[in-house]
Design a protein around this nucleic acid. Sequence first.
RNA 1: GUCCCGUUCGUCUAGCCAGGCCUAGGACACCGGGUUUUCAUCCCGGCAACAGGGGUUCGAAUCCCCUACGGGACGCCA
Length: 463
Amino acid sequence: MNEVRVRFAPSPTGFFHIGSARTALFNWLYARHTGGTFVLRIEDTDKERNTEEALQVLLDGMRWLGLDWDEGPEKDGAFGPYFQSERGTVYQEYLDKLREQDRVYEKDGAIWFKLEGERYTAYDERLKKEIEKVKAEPIVIEDAVRGRVERAEEKDFVIFRANGEPVFHFVNVVDDISMGITHVIRGEDHLSNTSKHCELFKAFGHPYPVFAHIPLILKSSGPGKMSKRDEGALIEDYAKRMFLPEAVRNYLCLLGWSPKDDREVIPINEIIELFDLPGINKGNARFDEKKLSFVNTEYVRAMPLETFTWMARPILNEQGLVSEDFDETRLQAILAICQPKVQSFEDLPGFVSYFFKDDFAYDEKAARKVMKKGDPLKRIEEFKAGLASLESWDSASLDALVAALVETHGASLGEFIQPARLAVSGTNRGPGFNELILTLGQAAVLKRFDRFLETMAQETPTD
RNA sequence: GUCCCGUUCGUCUAGCCAGGCCUAGGACACCGGGUUUUCAUCCCGGCAACAGGGGUUCGAAUCCCCUACGGGACGCCA
């Protein structure tokens, strides 16, 4: 049985960092690609934070991204418990194994792991003092992403703090062994720690798992990796901003991995099929919100109208634009002409608000641009008269009407359409003109024309 | 400071392992043009990169070495 078992082992800090999310994603992809098992293990040895709440942020983030785990919190398996805070006896057991081999000692109340090799003292430039070092055999790993990496540990290290709590390096390795983890996919920031971990694997007489150290996500500008304070660093923010989780996930896949065939917007099942460890890039990737937005827009445009409407309703409701019982057919009709134009759900309320309220404001810039050309008020009067007598409310009739207006009054199409758009929507951008007028309905359009004439007459007195 | 890892357009990347098909491809962004009754879409075009230097070779983005730069790790944090 060499079934793949991977794990994502976050510590609940109260936020879900985009880098962690990408690590989780790659583990998940690999598990799904290989038909293996994806374990979610919570490294909650630090009890300072509000763990329950912090845990929920994490679990919510995982669920939002669609990264379902096979074993872990709320999903017990044969290798539990999946919270490190509940694995004390396991850690004691493994500590005893090291004791039996005389690989540990106490110093300053803490328990240290003893490296094997010749000991000597040397001046440490960083600690500014003489310390004991060990000439240990170099650890060599065959990293699935980076190839052969060799590094030697040179100092004993703490595995249990003076307060009795086990340290990360120790629990990480013990859990990976006791949970049967076969592949360790994690950020490159752990590459240097790997020699510590391998020392422990060796001491336990356990073969190394396959390591795959993935590149880091760097700030979109400036030096260093993405930190939680950077714009766009937190998964929960994308949820709040109503990004589509599939889009965020798709974008994250593209940071450090590619399908090699120039495709970018790809269904997740195809990514799962193509994903593999050697295909992961070695170099760090810079986060780019513009590209993320692009991917998001692609997903927004591609949604079935029913789904789009279903998602839009609560958003519009929250903005006070539509009521709970707003007619579904009507809502769908409005959204049908907006979906191809709007960029994101975040922009949607602003994009469609005038459909739901009559007292919208006229965008100043748009108004200035429209009002200075020709005689817009006169055109609206003419348009109004034409519309009032329009017999049939359809696109063809509207086309005919506008053509007739152009003909009779000797003004260009734009001179009718631009003020009309401004009059009914308060802006100079939006859905196609005919669709806009037709969807609003004859009564609303006429009413809005009147309001426009009144308002503009006041603001731009003509002698 | 020591150690580890990396380096192709502004950004994400393809190509590198198995050197010639690369006058280096795609995408985002940006800039122009066209279509459009506005905006958007769409279409066309443009900008723009193999970090530098040495080798190896008939031939190097691809292999080797050095330098530079970037990132990471050196905690009784994870």
